[in-house]
Protein backbone atom coordinates (compact mmCIF):
# COMPACT_ATOMS: atom_id res chain seq x y z
CA UNK A 1 0.00 0.00 0.00
CA UNK A 2 1.38 3.43 -0.87
CA UNK A 3 2.48 5.33 2.18
CA UNK A 4 1.78 2.40 4.48
CA UNK A 5 4.29 0.71 6.72
CA UNK A 6 2.45 -2.56 6.23
CA UNK A 7 1.18 -2.68 9.81
CA UNK A 8 -2.06 -1.62 11.42
CA UNK A 9 -5.62 -2.79 11.24
CA UNK A 10 -6.90 -5.18 8.61
CA UNK A 11 -8.94 -2.35 7.11
CA UNK A 12 -5.94 -0.04 7.01
CA UNK A 13 -3.97 -2.80 5.29
CA UNK A 14 -6.33 -2.83 2.32
CA UNK A 15 -4.53 -1.23 -0.64
CA UNK A 16 -6.12 1.88 -2.12
CA UNK A 17 -8.02 1.09 -5.33
CA UNK A 18 -5.99 1.73 -8.46
CA UNK A 19 -2.58 1.60 -6.78
CA UNK A 20 0.08 -0.90 -7.81
CA UNK A 21 -0.47 -2.76 -4.56
CA UNK A 22 -4.18 -3.01 -5.33
CA UNK A 23 -3.47 -4.38 -8.81
CA UNK A 24 -0.95 -6.81 -7.33
CA UNK A 25 -3.34 -8.14 -4.71
CA UNK A 26 -6.19 -8.33 -7.22
CA UNK A 27 -4.36 -10.02 -10.09
CA UNK A 28 -1.24 -11.76 -8.85
CA UNK A 29 -2.90 -14.73 -7.09
CA UNK A 30 -4.89 -15.64 -10.20
CA UNK A 31 -1.89 -15.06 -12.46
CA UNK A 32 0.23 -17.29 -10.27
CA UNK A 33 -2.39 -20.05 -10.39
CA UNK A 34 -2.53 -19.73 -14.18
CA UNK A 35 1.28 -19.85 -14.42
CA UNK A 36 1.29 -22.86 -12.11
CA UNK A 37 -1.18 -24.73 -14.31
CA UNK A 38 0.90 -23.91 -17.38
CA UNK A 39 4.36 -24.64 -15.93
CA UNK A 40 3.43 -27.24 -13.28
CA UNK A 41 6.21 -25.81 -11.14
CA UNK A 42 5.60 -23.65 -8.07
CA UNK A 43 8.87 -21.71 -8.09
CA UNK A 44 8.72 -20.92 -11.80
CA UNK A 45 5.06 -19.94 -11.53
CA UNK A 46 5.84 -17.51 -8.71
CA UNK A 47 8.74 -15.92 -10.60
CA UNK A 48 7.02 -15.76 -13.97
CA UNK A 49 3.79 -14.26 -12.63
CA UNK A 50 5.76 -11.60 -10.78
CA UNK A 51 7.92 -10.82 -13.82
CA UNK A 52 4.80 -10.57 -15.98
CA UNK A 53 3.21 -8.17 -13.48
CA UNK A 54 6.31 -5.94 -13.49
CA UNK A 55 6.33 -5.97 -17.28
CA UNK A 56 2.68 -4.98 -17.67
CA UNK A 57 2.57 -2.56 -14.73
CA UNK A 58 5.61 -0.83 -16.22
CA UNK A 59 3.54 -0.02 -19.29
CA UNK A 60 0.34 0.75 -17.42
CA UNK A 61 0.09 4.39 -18.54
CA UNK A 62 0.66 3.35 -22.13
CA UNK A 63 -1.90 0.55 -22.34
CA UNK A 64 -4.60 1.34 -24.84
CA UNK A 65 -7.24 0.27 -22.33
CA UNK A 66 -5.85 0.35 -18.77
CA UNK A 67 -9.10 -1.21 -17.53
CA UNK A 68 -8.08 -4.36 -19.35
CA UNK A 69 -4.99 -4.76 -17.13
CA UNK A 70 -6.07 -8.30 -16.25
CA UNK A 71 -6.30 -9.33 -19.90
CA UNK A 72 -2.88 -7.83 -20.71
CA UNK A 73 -1.38 -9.53 -17.67
CA UNK A 74 -2.92 -12.88 -18.59
CA UNK A 75 -1.56 -12.63 -22.11
CA UNK A 76 1.92 -11.80 -20.79
CA UNK A 77 1.79 -14.69 -18.29
CA UNK A 78 0.84 -17.12 -21.06
CA UNK A 79 3.62 -15.80 -23.34
CA UNK A 80 6.23 -16.05 -20.63
CA UNK A 81 5.11 -19.56 -19.64
CA UNK A 82 5.32 -20.71 -23.28
CA UNK A 83 8.81 -19.25 -23.54
CA UNK A 84 9.75 -20.84 -20.20
CA UNK A 85 8.57 -24.20 -21.53
CA UNK A 86 10.76 -23.93 -24.60
CA UNK A 87 13.80 -23.07 -22.49
CA UNK A 88 13.05 -25.97 -20.13
CA UNK A 89 12.87 -28.35 -23.08
CA UNK A 90 16.29 -27.24 -24.27
CA UNK A 91 17.68 -27.61 -20.74
CA UNK A 92 16.09 -31.05 -20.29
CA UNK A 93 17.43 -32.23 -23.63
CA UNK A 94 20.88 -31.09 -22.56
CA UNK A 95 20.57 -32.82 -19.18
CA UNK A 96 19.39 -36.00 -20.90
CA UNK A 97 22.36 -35.99 -23.28
CA UNK A 98 24.71 -35.36 -20.37
CA UNK A 99 23.28 -38.26 -18.37
CA UNK A 100 23.52 -40.51 -21.40
CA UNK A 101 27.14 -39.47 -21.77
CA UNK A 102 27.88 -40.12 -18.09
CA UNK A 103 25.80 -43.28 -17.68
CA UNK A 104 26.30 -44.66 -21.15
CA UNK A 105 22.56 -44.96 -21.63
CA UNK A 106 19.63 -42.71 -22.38
CA UNK A 107 17.09 -42.14 -19.64
CA UNK A 108 13.77 -40.44 -20.06
CA UNK A 109 13.21 -37.24 -18.16
CA UNK A 110 10.03 -37.38 -16.08
CA UNK A 111 7.36 -34.73 -16.00
CA UNK A 112 7.63 -32.13 -13.25
CA UNK A 113 6.37 -32.81 -9.76
CA UNK A 114 2.63 -32.65 -10.14
CA UNK A 115 0.91 -35.97 -9.48
CA UNK A 116 -0.06 -37.73 -12.63
CA UNK A 117 -2.02 -40.61 -11.16
CA UNK A 118 -5.34 -39.40 -12.52
CA UNK A 119 -5.86 -40.20 -16.18
CA UNK A 120 -7.26 -36.74 -16.99
CA UNK A 121 -4.32 -35.08 -15.26
CA UNK A 122 -1.88 -37.30 -17.12
CA UNK A 123 -3.54 -36.65 -20.46
CA UNK A 124 -3.57 -32.89 -19.80
CA UNK A 125 0.10 -32.95 -18.87
CA UNK A 126 0.96 -34.69 -22.13
CA UNK A 127 -0.79 -32.20 -24.39
CA UNK A 128 1.39 -29.91 -26.55
CA UNK A 129 2.04 -26.62 -24.72
CA UNK A 130 -0.30 -24.40 -26.70
CA UNK A 131 -3.12 -26.94 -26.64
CA UNK A 132 -2.78 -27.28 -22.88
CA UNK A 133 -2.74 -23.51 -22.52
CA UNK A 134 -5.93 -23.29 -24.58
CA UNK A 135 -7.61 -25.90 -22.36
CA UNK A 136 -6.49 -24.14 -19.17
CA UNK A 137 -7.81 -20.82 -20.47
CA UNK A 138 -11.08 -22.42 -21.55
CA UNK A 139 -11.87 -24.69 -18.61
CA UNK A 140 -10.00 -23.06 -15.74
CA UNK A 141 -10.14 -19.36 -16.59
CA UNK A 142 -13.56 -19.75 -18.29
CA UNK A 143 -12.57 -17.54 -21.19
CA UNK A 144 -14.46 -17.09 -24.43
CA UNK A 145 -12.85 -18.03 -27.74
CA UNK A 146 -12.09 -14.35 -28.38
CA UNK A 147 -10.39 -14.02 -25.00
CA UNK A 148 -8.41 -17.23 -25.51
CA UNK A 149 -7.28 -15.92 -28.89
CA UNK A 150 -6.12 -12.64 -27.28
CA UNK A 151 -4.25 -14.49 -24.53
CA UNK A 152 -2.49 -16.79 -26.98
CA UNK A 153 -1.88 -14.06 -29.55
CA UNK A 154 -3.66 -15.94 -32.34
CA UNK A 155 -6.86 -15.71 -34.37
CA UNK A 156 -10.21 -16.82 -32.98
CA UNK A 157 -10.23 -19.65 -35.50
CA UNK A 158 -6.81 -20.82 -34.40
CA UNK A 159 -7.87 -20.69 -30.74
CA UNK A 160 -11.02 -22.70 -31.53
CA UNK A 161 -8.90 -25.20 -33.41
CA UNK A 162 -6.45 -25.56 -30.51
CA UNK A 163 -9.28 -26.33 -28.07
CA UNK A 164 -10.88 -28.72 -30.56
CA UNK A 165 -7.66 -30.64 -31.22
CA UNK A 166 -6.84 -30.77 -27.51
CA UNK A 167 -10.29 -32.17 -26.70
CA UNK A 168 -9.94 -34.75 -29.47
CA UNK A 169 -6.61 -35.85 -28.03
CA UNK A 170 -7.99 -35.98 -24.51
CA UNK A 171 -11.03 -38.01 -25.57
CA UNK A 172 -8.83 -40.44 -27.45
CA UNK A 173 -6.38 -40.85 -24.59
CA UNK A 174 -9.02 -41.19 -21.95
CA UNK A 175 -10.95 -43.59 -24.13
CA UNK A 176 -14.17 -41.63 -24.20
CA UNK A 177 -16.06 -42.31 -27.43
CA UNK A 178 -17.90 -39.41 -28.99
Amino acid sequence: MEGSDGRGTAEADQPRPGTLEDLYVRYLPESTRLAFLLTRDAASAEDLAQEAFIKVAGRLRHLRTPDAFGAYLRRTVVNMCMSHHRRQKVARAYAQRERARVDGRVQTVGLPDLETTDEVRTALAELPDRQRAAIVLRYYADLSEEQIAHSLGCSVGAARNLVFRAMETLRRRIGEER
Binding site: M1, G6, D13, P15, L20, E21, Y24, V25, L28, P29, T32, R33, L34, A35, F36, L37, A42, A43, A45, E46, A49, L114, R121, Y140
Partner: peptide, 11 residues
Protein backbone atom coordinates in the same frame (compact mmCIF):
# COMPACT_ATOMS: atom_id res chain seq x y z
CA UNK B 1 -4.33 -28.30 -9.23
CA UNK B 2 -4.67 -24.51 -9.14
CA UNK B 3 -5.19 -24.75 -5.39
CA UNK B 4 -1.64 -26.08 -5.09
CA UNK B 5 -0.20 -22.87 -6.58
CA UNK B 6 2.04 -20.82 -4.27
CA UNK B 7 0.29 -18.34 -1.99
CA UNK B 8 0.65 -14.72 -3.04
CA UNK B 9 0.41 -12.05 -0.34
CA UNK B 10 1.21 -8.36 -0.49
CA UNK B 11 3.53 -6.84 -3.09
Amino acid sequence: DANRAPFVGTM
